[in-house]
């Protein structure tokens, strides 16, 4: 067991290291430099580039970068967007709002998805099931930004129930209500995914022998479903939700832009356009860390619960 955990963590660190390297190279190979300003004299430019080590070959730049990361948690310094500020700090400022958006939308998605999934499975082949299945197809198919646009136009503009854009400086009540639409827009697809998974899983389990036994011992349909059938489906669900988290964080980029939420997604686009390379690398690493971390958690929980996973991956099966 300890060996398994150690292996997975080592693999995750290795993955992260490779990503770090690729991200660094790709971003540095992008055309243009932040110091390509015609107003700067050549001598000033030279001093600036020297200070940022840009005059050296890319491999040496990479070594400097690695040294900074490992020895003093220095992810480079932002030059354009927030000049002089460490890239790490710039991101840390933006994380709370992005994380709040993503966490809350997933927190909402799980109970709703579970509710609809259980309902559809229990009322299998009735109108309720059909309605939920149609809803699932819509939720999975309609792009989040189309859905968000509809919400923005009808609920915010036509009916005026919510602010059209995110209001970071307003009172708490207004701020919260301005978060409702983006959260809702982000939660739609996770709700549909969870519902679809649970419905499929439960329909299969509901006809199994242990469900008959559960009912024979006197449980009603609902109790039997929640206590016995759901437990079977719970473990894969956790991994689906964790994987979704990584996806949602990436997907919130466009929602953040539509509702002008000052989060990490916007920072990414802005830093790329401003050629603020250290910041871009740092944001990329942030996203990569989230998906590597979720993958690691999934692997570890699976390994603990299901011994077959630990044994997997032998040659020539």
């Amino acid at each position: 067991m300890a060996k398994y955990i150690f292996q997975r963590i080592l693999a995750a660190i290795l993955t992260l290291f490779v990503i770090l390297t690729i991200a660094f190279c790709v971003v540095r190979l992008m055309p243009g430099s932040v110091f390509d300003d015609p107003d700067l004299s050549d001598s000033v430019k030279k001093v600036l580039e020297e200070r940022a080590h840009l005059d050296k070959p890319i491999f040496v730049q990479y070594l400097y970068f690695l040294k900074g990361v490992v020895t003093e948690n220095d992810w480079g310094t932002s030059v354009k967007l927030s000049p002089g500020m460490p890239a790490f700090q710039v991101i840390v400022q933006k994380i709370p709002v992005t994380m709040a958006l993503n966490f809350i939308s997933l927190l909402i998605a799980v109970p709703f998805g579970a509710l609809f999934g259980i309902l559809a499975a229990m009322k299998n082949k009735t109108k309720v099931d059909t309605a939920i299945s149609v809803g699932v197809i819509l939720g999975i198919s309609i792009p989040s930004f189309v859905f968000a646009t509809c919400l923005q136009y009808f609920l915010a503009y036509k009916f005026g129930w919510f602010p059209i854009l995110y209001q970071p400086t307003a009172t708490t009540a207004v701020k919260v209500s301005s978060m409702v639409l983006p959260i809702f827009a982000l939660a739609l697809s996770p709700i549909a995914t969870i519902t679809r998974y649970l419905r499929g899983e439960l329909i299969e389990v509901l006809n199994s022998d242990f469900m008959v036994l559960a009912k024979t011992k006197g449980l009603n349909q609902f109790q039997a479903t929640v206590r016995h059938a759901l437990r079977n489906a719970a473990m894969p669900l956790v991994s689906i939700i964790l994987h979704m988290f990584a996806g949602v964080v990436g997907g919130s980029l466009v929602i953040e832009r539509m509702f002008s939420i000052p989060g990490v997604g916007g920072l990414m686009i802005k830093s790329i356009n401003a050629l603020d390379h250290s910041l871009t690398v740092a944001v990329l690493i942030f996203y990569a860390m989230i998906s590597v971390a979720t993958a690691l958690i999934v692997d570890l929980t699976y390994g603990v619960v299901d011994p077959r996973v630990r044994m997997g991956g032998k040659k020539d099966e």
């Binding site: 693999a11 997907g251 980029l253 990569a288 998906s291 040659k315």
Partner: peptide, 26 residues
């Protein structure tokens, strides 16, 4: 299979760790 599989699958895992939207943007 075997070590070929191990190396190839590690590569897909690394690629998979980049969020699709971010890679596409870059």
């Amino acid at each position: 299979g075997g070590s070929v599989d191990m190396v190839l699958m590690r590569i897909t895992e690394i690629l998979g760790a980049f969020p699709q939207t971010i890679v596409a943007t870059m």
